[in-house]
Amino acid sequence: MQTAISINNISKHYGEIQALKNIGFEVEEGEIFGLIGPDGAGKSSLFRILTTLILADEGEAEVAGLDVKKDYMTIRQRIGYMPGKFSLYQDLTVQENLNFFATIFKTSIQENYHLIKDIYVQLEPFKKRPAGKLSGGMKQKLALCCALIHKPEVLFLDEPTTGVDPVSRKEFWQMLKKLKQEGIAILVSTPYMDEAALCDRIALIQKGEILKIAPPENINQVYKGRLISVKSKKTYELIQALRALPQVASCYAFGEFLNATFKTDVQAIDPILNELKQKHFADLEWHQTQPGIENVFMQLLSQSQADDSSIKAQKR
């Protein structure tokens, strides 16, 4: 297997703000690698360095076997990039945008049609519509088509599904799976934890630092404490009550249930919750549950937030 992206000790500052600290990892050909982190974590800076749009302060990186500094012109011909902001021409139609990008890369829609076919058939009814007038999901599909039209070896997708509805998100990820089968390496960032589970490997990133790299199914091995799903009709009161317990490290809403992390042994948990049930929450129900990526990420986030106690307003 070939290495599509190789990152070694990359750091980047903006004035006093350190956007990236000693980042290093590799992405293989045909791998979907997810960068999972909140707004301001440094994901977009890393994308811009790898797509040769900005220079790192320190460290080296290679994309498709080429150096991001020396070989930037060649890299640009061999990658596809979908930036976080919608950057197609709003007043050109769907078809005009696609033609424009094909022409820039000295190719044609026909030549690589097989790559975009599945996506493009959904766009075709709207091909005469200006890109600015498309719905969010359709805009993302068009942007993906434009990033793919020159058959790139490596695809960079910076939050391609933010603000997109769950159905369109699912369709978008089905397309990524197909591109992976074509051997295209994909580096993708997302704030959605359910999408993290669809990657081959993920890196959890926060404040410019990588907290953990692992396949999504192994990420929960680092979880500390016992996770219990708890439910009552009085959600607001229950959150307060659980957070007030000294045995509970954290409590957050998690879909239908609240997820409470207990610092105690498993045996100690039932008596605590039984007491709560008798005193205040007659309808209380609970069961032990396996931590998911979101649980792990939240635990790592709160640890790293506790580490630096300075709450200074930061520039993005």
């Binding site: 704030p191 959150i239 939240m298 709160s302």
Partner: peptide, 16 residues
Amino acid sequence: GGVDPITRRQFWDLIY
């Protein structure tokens, strides 16, 4: 949209 899962839940604390 676009924030980390803890911040999202802190926002929901405000809603509750």
